[in-house]
Simulated scan of single mutants.
Amino acid sequence: MKATDLLADAHALLLDFDGPVCSVFAGSPASMVADQLRGVLADGGHTDLPEAIATSTDPFDVFQYAATLGEDEARYVEAAFSAHEVEAIPTATPTLGAHELIVAWHQSGRPLAIVSNNGVPAISAYLDLYDLRTSIDFVSARDGSNAALLKPSPYLLHQAVTALDVAPGESVFLGDSTSDIEAAQAAGVRSIGYANKPDKDSRLTAAGADAITEVLTGLAAVT
């Protein structure tokens, strides 16, 4: 099925944030944030990290590892992570076509939610920066240190469709990672894989995406 057909039939749109809406760490590399989160762990005495965590460039890997160490470690690392996300927002790069899709969808009268593993404060800062808050009906995102609630768990998607008062099967989730697609499947929500890099098409398809799009430009026209 084409992405345009899914959108035309959907009663509600759910959008991942980092990727489909913007590149959060475009001006503040994620690898630097991961290093800083490892510094938080080191300050707490956790210096002997597994190789995969010690070398990861993804701050989510460090946060999820912190959550395995204990509630305090998870809370401290999440707080630092949230602060770095907010600091990154002024240099985040909007995804071409994303703002137009958001505004057009809102104008169509159908509800729209942001569903993201990123923190609520950063998403709120972005929506305010670009005057998009009135076009978003709900934000379902990380608001604490419980890493188990993040995608690929369906929790955030369940929370979004409940808040929007729509059936999961009448909603479509647009995300750019396999964890997005897995979360959508677990929640009973149809999914569009945003293949914004050459290697993503096959991975998102294999994960079970109902449709694939390589660009967001033009999608606003189907609303």
Rank of each mutant, 00 (worst) to 15 (best):
L6E: 14
A8V: 10
A8Y: 11
A10E: 03
A12W: 01
F17W: 14
D18N: 15
G19S: 02
F25G: 03
V33S: 10
Q36T: 09
L41I: 01
D43G: 02
D43L: 05
H46V: 13
T47A: 04
D48C: 02
I53E: 10
S56H: 03
F60W: 09
F63C: 09
F63N: 07
F63D: 07
Q64T: 07
G70V: 02
E71T: 11
D72V: 14
V77Q: 02
A83R: 13
H84V: 00
E87R: 14
E87S: 12
A92E: 09
A92F: 11
T95N: 04
T95K: 09
L96T: 15
L96K: 13
L101Y: 10
V103T: 15
A104Q: 06
H106G: 15
Q107L: 14
V115G: 05
V115A: 02
N117C: 15
G119S: 15
Y126Q: 07
D128P: 03
D128C: 09
L129T: 13
Y130A: 01
D131N: 15
D131C: 08
D131W: 06
L132R: 09
R133L: 07
F138Q: 05
F138V: 04
R142C: 06
D143I: 00
G144K: 07
N146T: 05
L150Q: 09
P154F: 10
H158A: 00
H158Y: 14
V161T: 09
L164A: 04
L164N: 03
D165I: 04
A167W: 04
G169E: 06
V172L: 01
S177D: 14
S179R: 14
S179T: 15
I181L: 12
Q185D: 10
R190T: 08
I192A: 11
Y194L: 15
D199F: 15
R203V: 11
L204I: 06
G208C: 09
A211T: 00
A211Y: 04
V215R: 13
L216S: 13
L219Y: 12
L219Q: 13
A221W: 08
